[in-house]
Design a protein around this nucleic acid. Structure first.
Lengths: 169, 169
DNA sequence: ATTCTACCTTCCACTCTTGACAGGTCAATC
DNA sequence: GATTGACCTGTCAAGAGTGGAAGGTAGAAT
């Protein structure tokens, strides 16, 4: 249900075509809410039909620029403020932990150490990202930075936990 | 693709019926990999057809007790040791952060404080769970505890982050 | 003897997600 | 003038997950 709101949220900043949105999904949102082309275009159609978006302009190459409507803004605001986010859901990493009893202790230990190393790598990748992005004063910069900090803390926590867990076995 | 392995993992410990599995999905796995009845029964059928499970016994009320086969164990081991877990999943909480720029600063601040409170509540709920479970020496106890500790660290981190983020605005 | 509760499976209709295929056009470069 | 590459939209099949309805049986309690 959240792809709908992701699209609304991106269009709330400024109008864009499906193609533009895809690029933003691939860059800033890829780690938070990935989406494919077919999903984005499909959702744009549905949202336009529902009146939460309109085709503001048509450009070359059949480009359709979508803009959010007042109704769309109201829906976005409602979702953001008046509904509770789904708490944390599926985690393949944790699922595996539950079944570590079905392999040898050595293998379990190795798995957790590997997991720690993977978390470290991801942590470094995020740090690199932080260094490479041009942070401005726009909406995406300010709040994107908060999200990035979350990622940094998350990966650090994961690495620590995995090392701790490996020691427990 | 992981529901398949969740079912295999549970059956690796001991044979069970679909009904039994559902209870274990509802209790221990609910926070890590939720599944509905229709999914579980469907997957059992597919896995049996594929030869990774067999119907070990039939009981009263049409009960079918499934047991994992050697082939199933091999697949579970392969998944656990030789494949990489999906790293980052979707996070509705973070998605919202990206769009906090479309509401007032006050609302954004309130949202983050609320998020901190929600994380605290979840943290406490996990602590209660930890206190109420009878921890034994079995597979699920040992490794379930590792997963629980992850949850505790995760919720603590979330609360800290949300308070920090609220201060940034 | 009846009723209740827990046990147990199957099916269906829907949405969300993935991955690919298919096509067309503008603008600049060689 | 031809090629290339970025731009741009659309559709389809299949899998994964959600939610609920439907239906039947064994055993325990009243």
């Amino acid at each position: 249900m959240s792809l709908r709101h992701a699209v609304l949220g991106l269009l709330a900043e400024r109008p864009a075509s499906g193609y533009d949105l895809m690029k933003r999904f691939e860059s800033s949102l890829s780690n938070v809410w990935p989406a494919t082309q077919s999903q984005v275009y499909g959702e744009l159609g549905k949202l336009a039909t529902a009146g939460l978006l309109t085709v503001a302009a048509e450009g070359p190459r059949g480009r359709k620029e979508y803009a959010i409507t007042e109704e769309g803004r109201a829906e976005l605001h409602h979702w953001l403020i008046e509904t509770e986010p789904e708490r944390f859901r599926r985690s393949e990493v944790l699922l595996r932990v539950f079944f570590l009893g079905s392999v040898s202790r050595f293998e379990a230990h190795t798995y957790l150490e590997l997991e720690a190393a993977r978390s470290d790598r991801f942590h470094e990748a995020l740090k690199d990202l932080e260094g490479s992005v041009e942070w401005g004063d726009d909406q995406m910069s300010v709040y994107g930075r908060l999200a990035l900090e979350y990622g940094l803390r998350q990966t650090a926590m994961q690495a620590e936990w995995a090392r701790w867990a490996a020691r427990q076995i």
